[in-house]
């Protein structure tokens, strides 16, 4: 999904929201995912075409990312979460403390999102009885929200996961 010619390469984004906290703090309470996603969605939604619809969609997408990080991180360090905007595109940049194994989890999860059968896989995962796969949130974003992902800066202790969303055009409403 690393679209080299796309938005992910450009840098005319302005920062709307930033949160920088020890990962232990973030992961001490599950409710943080909902609170942060909802708070950010309200804060940055007011000047969108449709503030309420936008906030619902952004909160849902952002929450899935936060829940993914909540479940899949490793070691100490800070969890940095930035939301940026360039026109219609909203970018969520997460710096996630992790070791090599988890770094691989993120890299392979993101890579598999360009598979042609990703939608089938996602729907099957959602309806199966097996434990929910930790990559489900990323799958949902790719399938239902047409998100684009990029992974960079793995330095052995943290990776950066960048997600670009165009919520008002991704036709999430089917």
């Amino acid at each position: 999904m690393d679209s080299s010619g796309g938005k992910l390469e450009t840098s005319s984004f302005s920062l709307l929201f930033e949160l920088d906290m020890p990962i232990e703090g973030f992961s001490s309470n599950w409710a943080h995912c909902d609170k942060i996603s909802t708070y950010a969605a309200r804060m940055i939604g007011h000047n969108r075409r449709d503030s309420l619809l936008y906030s619902n969609l952004f909160s849902s997408a952002f929450n899935e990312l936060l829940e993914t990080v909540f479940r899949s991180h490793h070691g100490g360090g800070n969890f940095v979460c930035r939301v940026l905007r360039d026109g219609d595109t909203d970018r969520i940049e997460l710096t996630i403390p992790c070791d090599e194994g988890l770094g691989r989890f993120y890299t392979t999860s993101v890579a598999s999102l360009s598979d042609v059968d990703r939608e089938e896989k996602y729907r099957a995962a959602l309806l199966s009885d097996a434990p929910l796969t930790p990559g489900i949130g990323l799958m949902e974003l790719a399938v239902d929200y047409a998100a684009e992902f990029k992974i960079s800066d793995f330095d052995g202790r943290a990776i950066r996961l960048t997600t670009d969303l165009i919520l008002e055009e991704s036709d999430v409403r089917c």
Binding site: L52, L53, N56, L57, S60, D144, V172, R173, C174
Partner: peptide, 9 residues
């Protein structure tokens, strides 16, 4: 339709 994601989900 107002909720945005629900029908698709």
């Amino acid at each position: 339709s107002v909720v945005g994601w629900a029908t698709k989900k």
